[in-house]
Design a protein around this nucleic acid. Structure first.
Lengths: 127, 127
DNA sequence: GTAACTGCAAAATATTTGCATCCTT
DNA sequence: AAGGATGCAAATATTTTGCAGTTAC
């Protein structure tokens, strides 16, 4: 794995994550930058950002890949296992502060590294 | 949505879920029955089984769709929100008894319907 | 007989890869 | 100059859909 060059494209993608504490789907970045960057480029930049522990990824409800640099993540050591919540109605993904006692939760049968909760967000539940 | 006919194919897929308390990926069923049923048929049967609350579905770590009829599910009313655990190493999916106090967990900001935990299972953690 | 089921081929969707070229250091 | 980055096209993989023919009740 080589050195990451801070190209224009790289900076633009990184800026998206810096701007928002929310998770962003790879897919949506492809659409957003459709006119200015190739999708291969975007996927490759996301791969590198994750490889360098700047963002982390998970798969959402409908099989799309999501990435997030959440507020409580450090750049050096990315032991990020806070849960994410995805609304099955509006598909928005939010980072949830990690208050789960995982050992209590599942009796230490498993080493839990990620949690995805899904259901309805407060906006969609009341519609 | 019409009546489900208990065809041979339908019975065979249903039997897979009756046999095992584990979750099964749509994908793996397609491979398993590649020589005897068409994949469209399999996907359609899965859709119907879920529509009739006999199995429930969720998306796993790598975007594949999984289905399970877990031990604590009733055939009539399928309010199944127990968590699933998927090992990121061997990809096996297990149903977890629901012992999470969701309201406590996320402060009732969301209506949680499903939970997917991931990490390493006991077998893979020790390798 | 009618509505549901099936197989086949093709489509849709998201992501990955090979390769030639361009850019940064 | 050399290694990384990019764009383009094609490949992958999973799931969905249209349609014509078959089967169950």
């Amino acid at each position: 794995m080589g050195i990451i060059r801070k190209t224009k494209h790289f900076q633009k993608i990184l800026a998206e994550f810096s701007k928002s504490p929310r998770a962003i789907s790879a897919n949506s970045l492809v659409s957003r930058f459709a006119s200015t960057m190739n999708k291969s480029t975007i996927y490759r930049i996301l791969y590198k950002l994750e490889d360098d522990n700047i963002i982390h990824s998970f798969v959402g409800l409908n099989g799309l890949k999501w990435y997030a640099k959440c507020s409580d993540c450090s750049f050096k050591n990315h032991n990020d296992n806070h849960p994410h919540f995805q609304c099955e109605e509006c598909n928005e993904v939010r980072c949830i502060p990690d208050v789960i006692n995982q050992t209590e939760l599942i009796g230490s049968q498993f080493y839990v590294k990620n949690i995805l909760l899904s259901g309805l967000c407060s906006r969609c539940v009341s519609v």
